[in-house]
Design a protein around this nucleic acid. Structure first.
Lengths: 235, 235
DNA sequence: TCCTCTCTGTGCTGTAACGTACAGACAATG
DNA sequence: CATTGTCTGTACGTTACAGCACAGAGAGGA
């Protein structure tokens, strides 16, 4: 349900590369449509493809017996799926699923490994991204532990907003509940507060961001900290 | 307060290397004593040295404003401190502190980076370890979220037991509370249960493991899962 | 048009863990 | 020996969230 497709969204990791390498990588990629709800990889399974999201985005989740999967991060055009191949390991640490319909570039895992051998700069970029991922995992962990539902909800909405490149996206309370590792009805309550405050509005899974400033004020500091950290590493 | 020093504890990451590279690395290392409570690095600060624990062990913690640091992992002779240098980044994602007095090998960060350039095998080993760290972070995150205090306490005791190479080590309730991200008195209650069940005994910070089997039964499955995962990657 | 499904709102009870506070026991120190 | 600090036990009110259950409302298909 992407209403507005921005003129030209590029994947930031690819954008980091010098022109020649960037073109080589782009040549190996094929554009694909990310379909909402598709599972792109299971934990501990090898990758078939790596994905560089453009307007679509992907969620990573930790799967544990007897519990709903717990969200560990979002991958939009600032990142990629399959980065552990840069460690020489063809396995996914987490389950990945399309969370926002849209577009992406993809490459076969084999081709990607090949490119990695040829491009030191690509490897360096991915190493940086890996470092970002580690700090994100840590912080998300602490955030889930210490912060309350409402700020955390605001944080996820902001992160989704950034990656959707639109003020309007699809996300039910049920989904959000899984992301945050809480009950659906807790989300209904927290989201209800935000809606009454005219910060967001939603209807049957269609969420609109009305007042981003307020949303940022409601969010815990984790949103800003993580963004800054990314920016610093890719400056 | 290490009472028994095992005859010959080697660092497993170094042990993974082929003889020649192993000797080269060992030659660059100096043995040091890890003193309980010493902070070895702060989050986002560069490393002076990297550490390969032997009988001592180190804890990594996530630092967040307004909260006690939250434990994210232990580093014993199965791992190392400073592995992010393998990503070409001289910065620590987390705070690291000596949690168990004992011995370690260390190398300057500069020297370590130099070794990394010379030894593809070292890099490969560290890449694997990085992957393990990522899965550990994820799982710890979910574990803290879903599992209750008692199983989590048991898990940390088991992990500490492994890394201390002794049935007896120093760890106050206060410390454990920080590790688990809970109140001190919650730990007193959970530990009291374990003591009454004769699984552990403790006195003024000196903990003894009496019945490891029972401790394993009390722990959540995370302990086994994480061990298996490590073993599989370093098989 | 009806039916079914999905999404959301809400209310109730239960409970794990918090926050705080205090007291006793022991160890170390002067 | 007295004093101080550290470690542990315990207790009580509070709170955030779980778990469950149900009802209403809109969407979409038959």
């Amino acid at each position: 349900m992407l209403t507005t497709t921005p003129a030209r969204v590029i994947n930031h990791l690819i954008g980091c590369l010098p022109r020649e390498e960037r073109n080589r990588v782009l040549k190996r990629c094929e554009p694909v449509r990310l379909v909402f709800g598709t599972t792109l990889c299971e934990a501990n399974q090898p990758f078939q493809h790596v994905y560089f999201p453009l307007t679509g985005f992907i969620s990573r989740a930790i799967v544990m017996d007897g519990h709903q999967p717990l969200e560990a991060g979002l991958i939009g055009n600032e990142g990629m799926l399959g980065v552990t191949l840069a460690l020489g390991i063809n396995a996914a640490p987490l389950r990945a699923m399309v969370q926002g319909a849209g577009t992406a570039l993809r490459m076969t895992a084999a081709q990607f490994q090949h490119e990695l051998r040829d491009s030191a700069c690509l490897l360096d970029t991915l190493n940086r991204y890996l470092y970002v991922l580690m700090t994100q995992l840590s912080r998300t962990s602490a955030c889930n532990h210490f912060h309350e539902i409402e700020p955390r909800l605001a944080r996820w909405l902001l992160m989704t907003h950034d990656r959707a490149h639109a003020d309007h996206f699809h996300l039910t309370h049920e989904y959000l509940a899984n992301m945050l590792g809480v009950r659906r009805s807790s989300v209904t309550i927290a989201a209800g507060v935000l809606q009454r405050r005219k910060v967001i509005s939603y209807n049957r899974g269609e969420i609109s961001i009305l007042d981003r400033k307020e949303l940022e004020a409601t969010s815990c500091e984790c949103y800003g900290v993580m963004n800054d950290h990314y920016a610093r590493l890719f400056a």
